[in-house]
Amino acid sequence: MLDLQGIAKHFGGVHAVDGVDLTVKRGEILGLIGPNGSGKSTIVNLVSGLFPLTSGRILFEGDDISDLPSHARVGLGIARTFQNIRLFGQLSVWQNLWVAQNSRQQRQEVFFKRWFGGSAGVQAEIERTLEFFDLAHKRHELAANLSFGEQRRLEFARAISARPNLLLLDEPAAGMNAEEVDQLDARIRKMRDDGFTVLLIEHHVELVMSVADRIAVLNFGRKIAEGPPAAVQDDAAVREAYLGTR
């Protein structure tokens, strides 16, 4: 579904991502781990189009999307969350989800309904999303007034609102307590069962090992290992770079 071909991103002399090949298959959860500064978030930023590639190409469903702007990639079905939460703080919870209705199907809705009315279908969809993320009782609350965990959930919900096929989660468990991580674990599994493909970046190794179907490991902008969780866990290079030796 997503095919990264030798992508690289250099910031001046810093090679944040240095020729990574990575494939995410339809319907899988791919975990991406690695030490701080190894280029994980940069990959998410490149795939979501926040900044241009230095070299390489990005294929999505077989099409080259390397030069598309961010918002167009969302239309094709790539949505993301941010490591440091970025909500629309002075908008209500409901509005945060409302503005994110930007999938290809949603774009084809009648102009007037899309921008001014809000059809019954859209309303029902937002209600379902609120329900799934346990935010329905907060719908009129300003996003800035939510608790940390609620803000994380809302950001997740906002990413889902554009009906993506591929979901990029950038450290969704950062700052969460054990109970919230368990809920997140369950939600990610449910997403996969619903047919989403997920690229999960996470430092919470337990979570990644538990939900991911495959794991890729980055170090200094290069991929050093890839495979099923058990194999990656036993890989000598990965232990050396990230997990630590016993």
């Binding site: 961010s70 918002h71 949505a79 002075q90 930007n102």
Partner: peptide, 13 residues
């Protein structure tokens, strides 16, 4: 509020 987030939510900023 946040142009980057708006971009990433599919809005043509």
């Amino acid at each position: 509020e946040d142009e980057v987030a708006a971009h990433s939510s599919g809005i043509n900023v």
